[in-house]
Design a binder for these strands. Structure first.
Length: 930
RNA sequence: GGGCGGUUAGCUCAGCUGGUUAGAGCGACUGGUUUACACCCAGUAGGUCGGGGGUUCGAAUCCCUCACCGCCCA
């Protein structure tokens, strides 16, 4: 027996266990023999992360695809796993250490610290898996991977070494985006530009050889800056080559106030004559643009900061060169160790004192922030490892250009190309400990060995040095080099790790066992679809494309489905700081996983953001209950599945109609999922289940089920059970728990054993269809709907059972009325239904197709309301006819429109006119208004 | 500054390649306890499809333009 309501909280865990015990999600489970492969790799969530709405959406859609294809008999793999999220995870553990008052990362050392991170990973790493499980994600958990697994780490080593040998990975000294809080380089993509209210400070730089006079502009050049403190590292002033105002001074020098360095005025097009004074200070060590200008003019590079972006001038050779050291002793004393912002204040104050500031304007500008550390990044000159992304991008772009990989929606391809065409070298080294340590070893002569292991390094290094090398930690090795111990050569390994996205880029093949040639790799690569958010196209999709093309010479997926961004009810991006985060776990608690999934799928229209509203989730929870109750009702009426049911043998029109509708719905759902139109698929199954099956079919079939025609009853029962089965299948990808439960429940009640769980049941194939059945049922449905509407609008009390007189019925229609007499009486609240040639007087009337339905309720029906209602419809129809006539009387329309469109209009006019005539006659039959 | 997207019922959204009476859910209003379901049933109201211009026999749909909103990139 079915309980009175569907209890998601109780049933979901049970179903989850059923799937688990059946090993239902294992790669290839439930597939047909020699089935085509269908695979998706999950976008790996952070190992210590927890499920947010974006995950919920993305994984619901993937699960819909996966369950759909699995039911279609394909050999399906949904490959799950997590990534190690280098910076984020390391930060979490460091914060924990700080909060617990334990030794810091550096105090405890690399090995100890990594033990702690692994411990944290073990402890919290399962959370997201459990949450995906909760959502019903049918991943093959037996194949779960982690980016720092042995196998995947092997892939990383292999890729790094091979790219290095191919010259596509190299070490370079360039300005990088440096995070002074996390003390690591980050890639361009990890930098977030934020609008900041700051100041534009206009400095006066005195011209060399002139006596500075704040009142005399000919004695100085004005430069504007948002970063006054960097003047300590200025090595030039740039003006535009065609800017005549500065033609005289190009090639001469200015003297930096406060410490007296002389720097040259150079002509460079970087300087924008429209902006500020037209002259711009150049600090090559602390600005990307300035660095380029400096290179062009061979300007010095003076770094004034340490890695924490605190001022370091004492002992700073580059800074001290060329200036009077005694004169700056006080300056150094005052500034040494100040952070960027304190130094800025100090410099501005001192410059002000000397009259070197022309003005200070409030200024809103874009400042680069590290997306993890949350502090402004500092361009910093360091040695880092780079991937030559430009070379790898070529084949990756070709794959999309040639259509071997398609973006859905396709306009995202443009975003992909825009970025790929302007791609910059990818900085892959990170000054972190948590991640894949870079397989590079340094020797005392500056030689760098890039190999997969110490053993491999030893082989080449021994030859290189002509002696047997040893390995040590960096400090030790450096000390050994210092000592210049004779004969023994000590190497140390690069301490840095790789960007997490480096390992993620290998995900579509590293998870399948690459670099081994595994059967899984052969079968499931290239994967079918990659589903992700647009914000990750650069970070991940593009890089997977590059690596996949380079190492397997085959694009990693045929389709990239870009889903929408999930926003809150008001359309704001969810963020913890705004406090508008909607927690999918809470929604699942309240409404069930199925309801959440259905909501997300129903709202996932392409090219739009998803705004999640609780009322929607609640509505779809109600939908789940609706189906539950419909099934329960069928059960109460002994509708039992018959495994030998033959749809083509069904005789009753009602049965033929509902099965036709089921077939059509199946086709709609199938087409929609194939086209990634999840909202359309969800809407189709929703509409069929609720509006067609529950509201009409079940109501119409009730008299049959409760009647005493045994044969008809038997057929209605088995048909009803069959259609419910079809609904369960079509709905399963969206609401897997509820449907699996009902699949089992209905089988049990029928005393049959299912061939398989629903998760492995075969997707409905195009089946029974009968166009003629629709005509009959639609007539009955229209008739009932009209009677209901007339009754309500004419203020017929609900308790009154009205007689129905149908005027102008054809022989067929008359037969239909008899056939469905019980249903009509029930649903239209009629006492009797008769057919007549003459309409009764003063009846409420409605036009249904070719017939007029009359409710002779003299004394009960409100004639005035009745007249008004009919008049309103007359007016509407007259307007329609007017519109059609204006088309049909337009010679251009007749001439240019397709013949069938014209014919369509003619038919419509005839229909409308016939209806109008009947309505007018109906009004005529009412007593004239008093 | 460059690019992308949005603006349709009170709210949240559909409406694909131009011809529909412009739809759904929620909300509102009216009525309902008829033997699955009040997480329900029946019915009703509510839209100059952001403004303007154009293409077309015909535009919510295609083009231009303006306004506002959002995102990405400089």
């Amino acid at each position: 027996m079915f309980d009175k309501t569907y209890d998601a909280a109780a049933i979901e865990p049970r179903i989850r266990k059923v799937w688990q015990d059946a090993d239902a999600f294992r790669a290839g489970a439930g597939a047909e023999r020699d089935a085509e492969a269908y695979s998706i790799v999950i976008p790996p969530p952070n190992v210590t992360g927890s499920l947010h709405m974006g995950h919920a959406l993305n994984n619901t859609l993937q699960d819909v695809l996966i369950r759909f294809e699995r039911m279609r008999g394909k050999d399906v793999l949904w490959q799950p796993g997590t990534d190690h999220a280098g910076i984020a995870t390391q930060m979490v553990v460091e914060r924990q250490l700080a909060e617990a008052g334990e030794p810091s990362r550096r105090e405890m050392g690399r090995e100890k610290f990594l033990e702690r991170v692994w411990a944290w990973k073990e402890q919290s790493g399962g959370a997201i898996k459990g949450q995906l499980d909760r959502l019903g994600a049918s991943c093959d958990w037996s194949r779960e991977r982690f980016t720092m697994d042995a196998g995947l780490s092997e892939a990383v080593l292999s890729v790094f070494v091979r790219l290095h040998k191919q010259g596509l990975i190299y070490r370079d000294k360039r300005l990088v985006n440096w995070d002074p809080k996390l003390l690591t380089a980050i890639s361009d993509l990890e930098v977030e530009m934020k609008e900041v209210k700051g100041e534009l400070v206009h400095f006066r730089y005195p011209l060399a050889g002139k006596t500075f006079d704040p009142e005399d502009p000919s004695t100085f050049v004005v430069v504007a800056t948002t970063r006054p403190e960097t003047m300590l590292g200025d090595t030039g002033v740039a003006v535009h080559p065609e800017d005549e105002r500065f033609a005289d001074v190009v090639g001469t020098k200015v003297v930096l106030p406060l410490f007296g360095r002389e720097i040259e005025i150079v002509a460079d097009p970087y300087s924008d004559p429209e902006k500020g004074s037209g002259a711009v200070k150049i600090t090559p060590a602390h600005d990307f643009n300035d660095f380029e200008v400096g290179k062009r003019h061979k300007l010095e590079v003076i770094n004034i900061f340490d890695e924490q972006a605190d001022v370091r001038l004492a002992g700073n050779e580059a800074f001290l060169a060329g200036i009077d050291q005694d004169a700056v002793a006080d300056l150094i004393k005052a500034l040494e160790g100040l952070d960027r912002f304190a130094a800025r204040k100090w410099v501005v104050a001192k410059m002000e004192e000397g009259g070197y500031i022309e003005k200070i304007e409030p200024h809103v500008h874009q400042v680069p922030f590290g997306d993890r550390g949350g502090v402004p990044i500092e361009p910093f000159l360091t040695d880092q490892w780079y991937v030559n992304a430009k070379r790898l991008a070529g084949p990756a772009m070709d794959a999309v250009r040639d259509g071997r990989t398609k973006f859905v929606p396709e306009n995202w391809a443009k975003t992909y190309f825009d970025w790929m065409e302007n791609i910059q070298p990818w900085c892959v080294s990170r000054q972190l400990w948590w991640g894949h340590q870079i397989p590079a070893w340094y020797g005392p002569d500056g030689k760098i060995f890039v190999e997969r292991s110490e053993a491999d390094v030893r082989r080449t290094a021994d030859v290189h040095y002509g002696t047997s090398v040893t390995f040590a930690e960096r400090e030790e090795a450096l000390a050994a080099w210092e000592r210049e111990d004779d004969g023994s050569i000590v190497l140390y390994r690069d301490e840095d790790v790789l960007d997490t996205w480096f390992s993620s880029a290998l995900w579509p093949f590293s998870t399948l066992g690459w670099p081994e040639r595994t059967p899984e790799l052969r079968k499931y690569y290239p994967t079918s679809v990659l589903s992700t958010g647009f914000d990750i196209i650069f970070f991940w999709v593009a890089r997977m494309m590059m690596m996949g093309m380079h190492f397997l010479n085959q694009e990693p997926f045929h389709t990239v489905y870009i889903h929408a961004l999930v926003r809150d009810e008001k359309g704001a991006k969810m963020s913890k700081s705004k406090g508008n985060v909607v927690d999918p776990l809470e929604l699942m608690d309240e409404f069930g996983a199925d309801a959440l999934r259905f909501t997300l799928a129903a709202m996932a229209a392409q090219g739009r953001d998803v705004k999640i509203a609780k009322a929607r989730v609640q509505g779809y929870r109600n939908f789940a209950t609706k189906l539950w109750n419909a099934t329960r009702f069928a059960d109460l009426n002994e509708c039992r599945i018959d495994p030998n049911f033959d749809p083509s043998a069904v005789r009753a029109t009602l049965s033929r109609w509902i099965m036709t509708e089921a077939t059509r719905t199946g086709r709609q759902v199938t087409d929609a999922i194939e086209a990634y139109r999840f909202n359309d698929a969800a809407a189709a199954i929703y509409r069929f289940t609720w509006n067609t099956f529950c509201d009409w079919y079940l109501e119409l079939v009730k008299p049959v089920l409760m009647g005493d025609d045994g044969a008809a009853k038997a057929e209605a029962r088995v048909t009803t059970a069959f259609v419910i089965d079809e609904i369960l299948k079509l709905l399963h990808p969206f609401m897997p728990f509820l449907t699996e439960e009902l699949w089992a429940g209905t089988a049990e009640r029928a005393g049959i054993t299912r061939e398989s769980l629903l998760v492995h049941a075969r997707w409905p194939k195009a089946g029974f269809e009968d166009d003629d059945a629709a005509g009959e049922i639609n007539f009955i449905v229209d008739l009932i709907a009209s009677v209901r509407s007339v009754r309500a609008e004419s203020n017929v009390p609900a308790s009154v059972e009205a007689e129905i007189v149908v005027v102008g019925a054809s022989a067929d229609e008359e037969a239909w009325l008899v056939q469905h007499d019980a249903a009509i009486r029930r649903l239209a609240r009629a006492s009797a239904i008769s057919v007549s040639d003459v309409a009764p007087a003063n009846a409420a009337q409605a036009v249904v197709g070719n017939v007029v339905v009359c409710l002779p309720l003299e004394g009960i029906v409100d004639l005035a309301a009745e007249r008004a209602r009919l008049a309103k419809e007359v007016a509407r129809l007259e307007k329609d006819i007017e519109k059609i006539d204006s088309r049909l009387s337009n010679p251009k329309f007749l001439e240019k429109a397709e013949a069938e469109k014209v014919e369509e209009q003619r038919e419509k006019r005839a229909e409308t006119e016939a209806r109008l005539d009947k309505l007018k006659a109906a009004i005529g039959r009412l007593e004239p208004a008093a």
